[in-house]
Computed example of a mutant assay.
Amino acid sequence: MFLASYLLAALAVILAWPAPIMLSRARWTARSPETALVLWQAIALAGGLSMIGAMLTWGLEPLGENLLQGLRGLTGLLLDDSPAAGLDLIHVFALSAALLLTVHLVFTLLLTYYKIRKQRGRHRDLLNLLSSPSADSPRTLVINHPAPVAYCLPGGGGSVTVLSNGLLELLSPEELQAVMTHEKAHLDQRHDLLLWAFAAWRSALPWLPTSKLARTAVNELTEMLADDHALKTSDRETLVRAIAVVAAGERPQPGAGAVATGVGDPAKALLGAAETETFVTAHRLRRLLSPVPGLGRPAQSAVLLGSALLLAVPTVLLVAPGLAS
């Protein structure tokens, strides 16, 4: 399994560094956010599988020609205390590293989920004290705050959308409907699960710069997906105005900003916001103000096929016999 371990290691390096950087800089992702999200998930899963698989196949090489044979040999070694020719300290180290990385990734995933659930629970308790149900929209809470705020709080059957009085005062009914549809899309499409997974990846591998790139990209793509859903019931100009009002914290005066006049780049008015939020909002506004055709079906199919191959290649390398040198 020497060859398999080398190929898996090479694939792990590619998926941990150049591939995420190239994808984060690609322009086609805004044309098909859903397809791009599938590719991001494939990169993350295949990368983790390749990292663990490279160490596992190296460690099991003396015990079999592929992963299944190696695991059977390791099981016999542990249960029957049978001798294992060629299983030296280096192979034991590789097996230990594979086990530790697997436990670390799974533990971080579960720990991140626990922390998120705990934070949401505390947040929901505060909302129960500080908010009141909306008279016009079900599963919607209103908080008394002058700043325009709109977000969703996932929680299965208890998911809610949270709005502020400031937002209700600034937005027109049409703009408010666009915001509500946007937030509802986040809940219906369970974007929180995607964000949880990539937040766990970032926590598990903070030394990997591309884990931050991935989390930012996935956050941006989920926002674009929600925008696309909102455009099914609202016109583009209404949605742009609503996003600009929420981002700027006030309604632009005629002639004072790009959104009000319909010219220029409204993203420039958002430089005072938090860096990541500014980056995402600016890209959303540019995408809405300068729409481009969606990614063609052949291109989407090619990306989906590539995503499937990313998952298939490490799987085949792990189980295919005859890859030992």
Rank of each mutant, 00 (worst) to 15 (best):
H104C: 02
P18A: 05
T29H: 03
A30I: 05
E275M: 12
A16W: 04
L101E: 05
I116G: 07
G255W: 02
A36I: 03
L56K: 00
T75G: 06
S82E: 14
I21W: 08
A19G: 01
L3M: 09
L193Y: 12
Q69R: 09
L304F: 08
S132Y: 10
K184C: 08
P20K: 06
A135V: 13
A217G: 07
D88P: 02
R215F: 09
N165E: 15
C152T: 14
V316D: 05
A256H: 09
A85L: 07
L318T: 08
K118Y: 06
H123T: 15
A10E: 01
R284A: 11
G47C: 03
C152P: 04
W28K: 06
T315I: 07
L95V: 03
Q69M: 11
G47L: 00
L74D: 00
R122M: 08
L141E: 05
V313E: 04
V103P: 01
L141N: 03
P209D: 12
I116P: 02
L95M: 07
S164T: 06
P321G: 07
L208I: 01
L74Q: 02
P209I: 15
Q177Y: 09
S172C: 07
N219Q: 12
P146N: 09
F93S: 08
Y113H: 11
F107R: 10
T281F: 05
S234T: 13
T181I: 11
L74Y: 03
L109D: 02
I21N: 01
M224P: 02
K232F: 03
V13H: 00
G70M: 04
L310R: 06
E169T: 12
P154S: 09
L127T: 13
T112H: 04
R284I: 11
A282G: 15
R122T: 04
A299F: 12
L239W: 00
R236L: 08
S159G: 15
L288E: 09
V245Y: 01
A217E: 15
A30Q: 10
T278R: 15
L87T: 02
V259A: 06
L309D: 00
L110T: 13
G158Q: 15
T261Y: 01
N144L: 09
V263W: 02
T35Y: 07
T57G: 00
A256W: 04
A98E: 02
L187C: 13
M55F: 09
R202M: 12
K212S: 14
G155T: 05
L127R: 07
R297W: 13
A260Q: 08
L213H: 13
L318M: 15
L71S: 05
N128F: 05
L225N: 11
L23P: 01
T216S: 14
R72S: 11
L37V: 10
P266Q: 08
A204L: 14
A312T: 11
A302T: 12
